[in-house]
Design a protein around this nucleic acid. Sequence first.
DNA 1: GTAATTATTTAGACCAGCCTAATTTTTTAT
DNA 2: ATAAAAAATTAGGCTGGTCTAAATAATTAC
Lengths: 221, 221
Amino acid sequence: MSESTDNYLKAIFAISQDQNEGALTTVIASRLSTKASSVTDMLKKLDEQGLVKHRPYYGTSLTSKGRKQALRVIRKHRLWEYFLVEKLGFAWNEVHDIAEQLEHIESDDLTTRLEAFLGFPKYDPHGDPIPDDAGNMPPDRKTIAASTMKKAEAYQLVAVTDSSNLFLQHMKNLNLSIGSKLLLKEKYPFDESLTVTSGHSTIHLTKEVAANLLLIKAAKK
Amino acid sequence: MSESTDNYLKAIFAISQDQNEGALTTVIASRLSTKASSVTDMLKKLDEQGLVKHRPYYGTSLTSKGRKQALRVIRKHRLWEYFLVEKLGFAWNEVHDIAEQLEHIESDDLTTRLEAFLGFPKYDPHGDPIPDDAGNMPPDRKTIAASTMKKAEAYQLVAVTDSSNLFLQHMKNLNLSIGSKLLLKEKYPFDESLTVTSGHSTIHLTKEVAANLLLIKAAKK
DNA sequence: GTAATTATTTAGACCAGCCTAATTTTTTAT
DNA sequence: ATAAAAAATTAGGCTGGTCTAAATAATTAC
């Protein structure tokens, strides 16, 4: 399993996640910043190895073998992100590229020891679930977008839907992070923006921002 | 800088360490388990990049740029080894191959944070010195081989000269590890073996083993 | 239903890093 | 000093993964 193989499997997994159904060649290409012809070549090889099922114009999907491998890589990526933030003190918007390298380290023993060392975390610093050794995701948290917050209810920010550095940086500027406790203060129907309080500060969330923040109801405090 | 480049630089560095003077092509080849012709190819490229100075039949040596890069890789390798043993609980003879992968992760920020997280260790689990950020090795400890131990003197095992898995495994069987406190009990001139005590147990060291154990004088206890 | 657009594949090439086989250069032995 | 041995290099080829340019297939627009 080369690093390139891992990256293709991860990309196909991610694409099949949000847009349901198979991943189109062009979509894979754009996600991996590569050319469609390269993707065609590679998919042929992955298909031969039994990792994906490739059907032109319809989409490529992972076989169970491919999905298992993709989950292994995602597991490693998220555990390392957790390590980088919780143990080494990185800001959560700085860790992606490093985790992108660490996820390719091969050693099951390392992965299980790392997981134990970290205290068996279930979600990474972006709020994404960490698969267990068998590839099972932790139970879903019933999250709501910040845009649907209600007054007099306490919330906790547990995940974001946009993990781009641009958005992560914006959150940092707003002084928001995973774990922040939020209360709705005001809603502005005109532009669908809202203000919330987090601790002692008040934060204004535009419609675009609010849509990307996932919350759970929290014990009032 | 590719992983392959790193590995060549490391190999040349290590060879120049023990056998003084430049590394011969065949020696590099055998150390990297590759063929002499491949080494020739690669040395040409490294020379063009200003990382090594290659002189046929005489030996290849690192330029200061090459040495700097080699030390960066060695630094990462040894910090990761320390991490694997001290934080993840690996046995010290299990960590080499994993560190061999981790050493190629690119991020100076990661390296400095890791170093701080580990408490600025000066020696790795095999007793090898860890270069600092600028490539400086910690001050030499004046070690002696176990074969020159004297009675009524307390010693501590701080390093080994053979880091092969075979030797490391043997040490584990003997119940010896870095940090062990040793006292000479008896010397047997016939086969140059000796017996030492470590805590409450007595250990018999053959000539071959004793030559590979490096000790410092320790406070008596 | 034909034309235009979009998606995909093929053909041929490149690069890093490795290989084998053959050859050349240097060193060593006698 | 010459022959044998050792060290190094060259020539040519392979693989994985990528690319560009050209060709083909499917979808969509009208």
